[in-house]
Structure formats: structure tokens, C-alpha cells
């Protein structure tokens, strides 16, 4: 079990994979310096989000989707996929959701939080290259 700082550092390492550091070092940017800058950005993003959560104005009504359980959000995405004509993807996603264990049987304590994270990151990567 690693600490949050160690895990964030490991996440920074992951995002640096594929960067050529031999050429970088010649240009004056070291891996360590960039890793430090990444960690600073990571903590900045994490803390700004936490402070935003703490200053939420009570007058604003929360979005109805905000309180929707992540499994329902994935089902809503399945619906969107069907409407967009991606029936196979929608069925595959529904099937996977059905196979995802709930609670203690998953072996994880926060499986719904992980699902929420995947929903937040959905579509954030460039689409896979299409083959002709």
C-alpha cells in the first residue's frame, strides 16, 4: 500500500513514458526537473478541485446528473452509443457493466469511484486509428 504522494509520483512517471530524455538532456530539460514540474501541476489540479468543492455556493442547484450513480451514467452512455448507431459498442459496454462485481465481491473498496473516474475521462483520449 503506497501513499498518495508515491502514487501521484508514479502517475507522473506514466505520463512521461515515450519521451526521449537523451535529446532532452542536451536541450537543458532534465527528466527530474520535468517530473517535478508535473508533480506541481498534479497537486495544483488536485488542490484547486478540492478548494472548488469547499466553496460551492448553496444557492446553485446541483445538476441532476451529478448525483446519478456511476453505473447509471454508464447506462446513459450506452443509450447515447445506440442512438449514435454504435450498437455493438453499447452492447459490449452493457455486458461489461453486468460483469462488474459490486461491493466486497469486487475485491476493491471503491469500485464505484473508479467507474466515476472512467466516466469523467470518457472520450478524453484521441480516437483509435481506423483501419481501411
Amino acid at each position: 500500500s503506497s501513499s498518495i504522494t508515491e502514487l501521484l509520483s508514479a502517475l507522473c512517471d506514466c505520463s512521461l513514458s515515450g519521451v526521449s530524455w537523451k535529446r532532452r538532456a542536451l536541450g537543458g530539460v532534465s527528466r527530474d526537473a520535468f517530473h517535478r514540474a508535473l508533480k506541481k501541476k498534479a497537486y495544483g489540479a488536485l488542490l484547486s478541485k478540492l478548494f472548488q468543492d469547499g466553496t460551492k455556493r448553496p444557492a446553485l442547484r446541483p445538476s441532476p446528473v451529478a448525483n446519478t450513480p456511476p453505473r447509471n451514467k454508464v447506462l446513459m452512455m450506452c443509450f447515447d452509443l445506440r442512438v449514435a448507431g454504435c450498437r455493438d459498442e453499447a452492447e459490449a459496454l452493457e455486458d461489461l457493466l453486468g460483469r462488474l462485481p459490486e461491493g466486497a465481491s469486487s475485491g476493491l473498496t471503491e469500485v464505484d469511484s473508479v467507474l466515476e473516474l472512467l466516466v469523467c475521462l470518457a472520450g478524453s483520449a484521441p480516437p483509435p486509428p481506423t483501419s481501411f
Binding site: A42, A45, C120, L121
Partner: peptide, 9 residues
């Protein structure tokens, strides 16, 4: 918050 961190990285 974690998704914001990943997007920032």
C-alpha cells in the same frame, strides 16, 4: 479531482 489531474498531466 483525479480526472482533472490526469488531464493536466
Amino acid at each position: 479531482a483525479l480526472s482533472a489531474v490526469i488531464k493536466e498531466l
